[in-house]
Nucleic acid binder design. Structure first.
Length: 856
RNA sequence: GCCGGUGUGGCGGAAUGGCAGACGCGACCGACUCAAAAUCGGUUGCCCGAAAGGGCGUGUGGGUUCGACUCCCACCACCGGCACCA
């Protein structure tokens, strides 16, 4: 141990010097590596703590300070409570910003990325985060991304990775495709440009195969994940239950299937609509008259010129063209005209719908626009005017014919979507909506023209990107047009040197221009072949990184299933709500795939999830462009790591946004130096007998021991800090005006402060622990149990209420019985005065806390 | 439009159905100081009152209860997600 250590921790006048304390302990932690997770021989129960890993965009910011503080608090608390804790860190280091920075500076994205990583690593060290530094990963290392390629090939084998040509979201600025999840309000999530649709052949992961499991398994997470996130995922997956119905098409051999959530309204179908950008529309048009073909072509072009924003505007009038083709309603043989209209989406359901204008608002708007017939088949006045508000059994139709007249959708323009009874529907007449759905589905199934079916809002995950800085897709395009995996022993397919490559976005991957890199051989024939020039969405990287932390440096497998069994799933996961859909949905998907492969024994990756709020400034998000950044390294320099950590932890509930204007680093600093001074003031030796100490102070200490673990589990970190402040205040009082600094209770309490303060202010806590005469590290010390005898008070304050208002308080024994308490209450001077002669008609006694009198 | 969440002092926020406002920030008063800063002590929900004391108070209106920030119903405001998804 360096001889200057103890001296260095004191300021010029012997006061508390946070910077010196900080430097001293960081050095010792770096040397001793105390937060390394225990290995296979460690018999303690395990806990896996994880904060969503950072993107190396520059120096750490206040959002990081908050995020990794919270996970560190939990990790430290679990260590104190006897767990073998894994608290790893890595970097999500592939992605566009590095590439864009590289283009701007004409540099290699690698240099930018790894320089930023180094800066962030140093930042975490100086923030006192108790990471296990032996497991660091960077997704841009070939040692990591080779396992992305391995994963891709496993998905390919299972038919879960495939290529298709389809209209895709295209960002005209970043010049790359985007996943559905990366389009926010019609704009590119990254750069904000308006997204357009483009028809391209791309790689997809078949996440829709897992839609039901992704939806149903959310039930398991209820209570452990934020309700909001669960709900958002449910909406995103968007399962609709209904039926597929097959329609014959005149002049076409194959039937067209439509999906409907309201098969009960089949008798009300008066036309059919197909998505203009679907193959079906093109085919139907081409089989029609030249005039129709021309009008359709014009319409299609207009539609394709629209941005997503324009298309999503539901207020605009319905447009479409008649294709002069007809479908046959399978239930009654009616001839339905077929239209192409852009309110029908090509990639939902089957890209075609049966239009029931009386009972669907969009169909109604369209029918009224183009003068198509409207037929009511559900009498919605039946439940509304009848005696039974909700129909459980089938019953008679509405008697009142005027009612249905007054709500005629053709006149009101309002579709009838509510409950009701079927009319004009043959065998369905008189049935309730629900019963009619069941009946018609059975009838269609019997006739072979339909079946129960589900549809999802969720689309397959588009994972290929036309950019350089990502994982190369490990596939080979052969001369004869086959697409085959790169042999596993040739993985990883490494990125080429970026020097000499034009990385500027141009709509195709820059890798395509690296001709030497592109040239490869057909693994089967040895003939010349080409690599796939695209790279993977970086969300592939982050969909399984939590497993790689379990097998760092393992070069034979992505992760060791035994280690996964030991540590995973993650016990505590924390990150911003911006990943509520993207990352969390993808990670859940990949986990289920790995489960199906038998590589993990769980189906959900994150057992509990917390979304921390944002750090904002003056009510708005901080951003470089607004110039309202509070800089992490400046705050560290002026207030020190501990003050910053305490101030953030104390600022409010974890989930709430924290306005930096309300975060008091100076208050935190004041508290820390008060805490530190208490450790200096203790004059007793470590072997004192606590039981001989001041009982009042001991009660405060033990109440905290009793409360702290539960409060941490509930992530009420701000309350724990408040309790610590109370304890420090109580110790101060005992030292100055009570039992004095030599009292054993003062030592007992000061030690408690050091052990619990370690969660928030680890440097100060270590310094206190040392001052109290112990060896480092307080961060590894087991917490004490509360003494139950110190948790029960001798006397309590009982409250006397009269007609619900507090009219008196009584100091009574905690063991007082109800009758005695009531007698005391009745005799109390203030109570008697408040009663003013009124008679007590009822007394409720909850000894020893409450007496409640009612009067008349 | 559909789904979800949140409303508590000047501010951040506490509160198993049992004294609302813990803890802190800010403010005010005082001690120390030539003075200031730092530090320490005190006061601080609003209204009436010299005080004792009283009245009112957790978005609004109802309800359940001896007792409601907490539970139920309706409404208002704000925030978030989805949105021509058949």
């Amino acid at each position: 141990m360096a001889p200057t250590d103890t001296v260095a921790a004191h300021g010029p006048e012997g006061g508390y010097d946070p910077q010196a304390v900080q430097a001293k302990w960081q050095e010792r932690w770096a040397a001793a590596d105390p937060f390394r997770a225990g290995g296979a021989d460690d018999t303690r129960p395990r806990k896996y703590v994880l904060a969503m890993f950072p993107y190396p965009s520059g120096d750490l910011h206040m959002g990081h300070a908050e995020n990794y503080l919270y996970s560190d608090i939990v990790a430290r608390s679990w260590r104190h409570r006897g767990y073998n804790v894994l608290n790893p860190i890595g970097w999500d280091s592939f992605g566009l910003p590095a590439e864009n920075a590289a283009i701007k500076r004409g540099a290699d994205p690698r240099e930018w990325t790894y320089a930023n990583i180094d800066q962030q690593k140093a930042g975490f060290r100086s923030y006192g985060v108790s990471f296990d530094w032996n497991r660091v990963l960077h997704t841009s290392d070939p040692e990591y991304y080779q396992w992305n390629q391995w994963l891709f090939q496993r998905l390919f084998e299972r038919g879960l990775a495939y290529r298709k040509e389809s209209p895709v979201n295209w960002c005209p600025v970043d010049q790359t495709v985007l996943a559905n999840e990366q389009v926010v309000d019609g704009h590119c999530e990254r750069c904000g440009a308006e997204v357009i649709k483009k028809k391209l052949t791309q790689w997809y992961f078949r996440i829709t195969d897992y839609a039901d499991r992704l939806l149903d398994d959310l039930n398991q997470l209820e209570g452990f994940w934020p309700h909001k996130v669960i709900q958002m995922q449910r909406n995103w997956i968007g399962r609709s239950v209904g039926a597929d119905i097959d329609f014959e098409i005149e002049g076409r051999a194959e039937k067209v299937t439509v999906f409907s959530t309201r098969p009960d309204t089949l008798y009300g179908a008066t036309f059919m609509v197909v998505a203009p950008d679907s193959d079906l529309a093109a085919e139907l048009a081409s089989g029609s008259t030249p005039e129709v073909r021309m009008r359709f072509q014009d319409y299609l072009e207009t539609v394709q010129k629209q941005t997503e924003i324009e298309r999503q505007n539901t207020d605009r009038p319905k447009t479409g063209v008649f294709l002069d083709r007809y479908a046959i309603n399978p239930i009654n043989g009616e001839r339905l005209p077929i239209w192409a209209a852009d309110y029908v989406l090509a990639d939902y359901g089957h890209g075609a719908v049966m239009a029931v204008p009386a009972h669907d608002q969009r169909d109604l708007d369209f029918a009224r626009e183009f003068g198509l017939p409207i037929r009511v088949v559900v009498d919605t006045t039946a439940p509304a005017t009848g005696a039974i508000p909700v129909i459980a059994e089938d019953g008679p139709l509405s008697e009142d014919a005027d009612d249905i007249e007054s709500i005629d959708p053709a006149k009101t323009g309002v579709a009838l979507t509510g409950e009701g009874r079927l009319i004009n529907s043959g065998s369905l007449d008189g049935l309730s909506k629900r019963n009619a759905i069941t009946r018609i589905t059975e009838e269609l199934e019997a006739a072979g023209t339909g079946r129960a079916s589900k549809s999802y809002r969720l689309r397959d995950w588009l994972i290929s990107r036309q950019r350089f800085w990502g994982t190369p897709i490990p596939m080979v395009h052969t001369e004869d047009g086959r697409i085959v995996p790169v042999p596993e022993d040739e993985l990883p397919v490494r990125l080429p040197d970026a020097h000499g490559l034009d990385l500027a976005p141009k709509g195709t991957s820059p890798l395509g221009a690296a001709s030497e890199w592109m040239a490869t051989t057909d693994p089967e024939t040895g003939a010349a072949a080409l690599r796939d020039p695209d790279t993977m969405d970086t969300f592939v990287d982050s969909s399984w990184y939590f497993l790689r932390f379990l097998s760092p440096g393992n070069d034979s497998v992505a992760f060791d299933p035994t280690e996964a069994q030991r540590w995973a799933p993650v016990d505590f996961y924390i990150g911003g709500v911006e990943h509520a859909i993207l990352h969390l949905l993808y990670a859940r998907f990949i986990t289920k795939v790995l489960f199906d492969m038998g590589l993990v024994d769980f189906t959900e990756p994150f057992s509990s999830l917390i979304n921390q709020g944002m750090v904002i400034l003056g009510g708005t998000k901080m951003s470089k462009s607004k110039g309202n950044l509070v800089l992490f390294h400046e705050e560290l320099a002026t207030h020190g790591a501990d003050a910053l950590r305490v101030a953030l932890a104390f600022a409010g509930p974890v989930e709430d946004d924290k306005d930096w204007a309300d975060v008091s680093t100076t208050g935190a600093q004041k508290f820390l130096s008060r805490a530190w001074r208490i450790a200096q003031d203790v004059t007793s030796e470590p072997d004192v007998v606590w039981a001989e100490g001041d009982v009042a102070l001991r009660r405060v200490t033990h109440r905290l021991w009793a409360e702290a673990p539960g409060l941490i589990e509930q992530t009420k970190f701000n309350v724990v800090v408040a309790r610590l402040m109370e304890l420090v205040n109580a110790i101060r009082k005992t030292i100055d005006t009570g039992a004095g600094p030599a009292d054993p209770a003062v030592r007992e309490a000061a030690e408690a402060v050091a052990m619990i303060l370690d969660l928030f202010a680890p440097h100060t806590a270590e310094e206190m622990w040392e001052a109290l005469g112990y060896e480092p590290f307080v961060g590894l010390v087991g917490w004490r149990q509360a003494d139950p005898t110190l948790l029960v008070e001798d006397t309590v304050t009982a409250v006397v209420q009269i007609d619900g208002k507090v009219r008196g308080t009584l100091e009574v024994s905690a063991k007082i019985d109800g009758a005695d308490l009531e007698a005391l209450a009745r005799a109390d001077e203030r109570v008697v005065r408040s009663l003013a002669g009124r008679e007590i008609t009822r007394a409720i006694v909850r000894a020893p806390k409450v007496v409640s009198f009612s009067t008349n």
